[in-house]
Write a protein that binds this DNA or RNA. Sequence first.
DNA 1: TGAAGGTACCTTGCAATACAAGGATACTTT
DNA 2: AAAGTATCCTTGTATTGCAAGGTACCTTCA
Lengths: 138, 138
Amino acid sequence: MDIKNAKAQMRKGVLEMCVLAVIAERETYPPEIVERLRGTNLFIVEGTLYPLLIRLKNDGLVDYIWREGSQGPPRKYFNITDTGRQFLQELTDSWQELVESVAQTLYGAADEKPASKKSSAKKTPPALNIEPMPPSGE
Amino acid sequence: MDIKNAKAQMRKGVLEMCVLAVIAERETYPPEIVERLRGTNLFIVEGTLYPLLIRLKNDGLVDYIWREGSQGPPRKYFNITDTGRQFLQELTDSWQELVESVAQTLYGAADEKPASKKSSAKKTPPALNIEPMPPSGE
DNA sequence: TGAAGGTACCTTGCAATACAAGGATACTTT
DNA sequence: AAAGTATCCTTGTATTGCAAGGTACCTTCA
């Protein structure tokens, strides 16, 4: 369990939102998506991007159109759909919630909602016996 | 691809950091970890937590001790190790970077570093031909 | 006594995603 | 024609979250 892997795991599901956001900004094609995300320290590789785009397309969140340029092979230009915009909004909302929840966990509750639900006596400190190993060993 | 799954994917790798943070705060045992994370809108279930704790233990990031209480079965109380604290620091640093990168992607570059690396002509808008489908169909 | 319920711990199988590695096609250059 | 570049795509592996289910200890109470 190294930091590199931990970082990769943190990005799960985030890349989908970011790729969608990049496409939402303006029509673009895969290598440019890679480039633009690298500009914000979010590195994505082809092997990740293409299956992701296929998923987005299959779910109707994006659409694409082939375009030929004056040079090189034709490109697949992606656009976001209306459904995609709605979903992107939901994603960003969920992301904000997650960021806030994590902040609360990491740095303590900024402002705990005083109207809790049912548990008010919950921070009971663990002051128990100290019997090193009760059950059978592992 | 629904929002529920998207949320689940976003949490990948984040739960590890949060569980470590909860343990770092003070000695605790699994059901209490579940409870404390639920207090910050981060829901984790047993089937996720126990394998995660085993991973943390195997990597030397946490340690545990059996304690018997006055009631119920004995509990496994977890503590963070020195290695664990270092790793948690790395995790939170990585998390901060990720949050900033995502913010930049979603809401545009807050303050783009003017000293770019090598590409200054990158925002070329895609104004090309419009030939609907050049290659073979899909 | 012994049966039921609560608490705590743990495992198995499935689904989803990031990534490394490699391959295919179209176009350009030498 | 051969080599190089840009673009698109697939396959296999590793990791993780989760639902579902199982085991063990302890308490209660008929």
